[in-house]
Amino acid sequence: MAVLVLTGCTSGSNGNEPGPERQDVTRGDVLEPRAAPLGVQIASVAGQIPRRQREQIRKRIAATVSGYVQGAFLGDYPRTTYRGAFGDFTDSARSRARRDLGLLTHADRGARYVGVTPRRQQVRVHAYAPRRRVLGATARLRLVLLIERDDETVQRVWVTGRLLLTRTRNGSFRVFGYDIRRTSSRPAVAGGGA
């Protein structure tokens, strides 16, 4: 039976995050970790919007954020292409993001990954709603990813930060800016946190 070595944060968990890792764990214990679904919540709205619009907006922003998270970090591994990660980015933001590919995706190491399981996917949205319409938003992400590598080690990675969104004419949201931090130890909640 193979032995997996877990790296990353080993203490300080709170009730919302997976507990501390064990240093030597049998593969059978962690082979099928539970994947956490993407949870998107409207945390605040600057301005007022009708209640029914709130859920609609939440879903649209969730679609944009999910497209990025799925394309950049989740999906099937090993893989070397991340073409879909920036599909909902504006042209200018996409151009910038391609220069930051190694931090905004798993592009520089995904070929050595066997699998990536999200243990936490929390998104809190702060919306900007002039004239009773949400026209922009900051989506604050907090992801915890469990990464299984081809050398049979498992690493925990935190992805935190912000996606800056504006609404398009068809009602969908596009990313025009980002501030994403990736760490192999638990980041402070303030700043780039959700």
Binding site: V175, Y178, S184
Partner: peptide, 20 residues
């Protein structure tokens, strides 16, 4: 022109506003 550059670091921060 867009450039595809990998950043081979475990930890880091990427930040940009795509204004045109």
């Amino acid at each position: 022109p867009a450039a595809l550059v990998s950043v081979a670091r475990d930890d880091g921060r990427a930040q940009a506003i795509g204004r045109d």
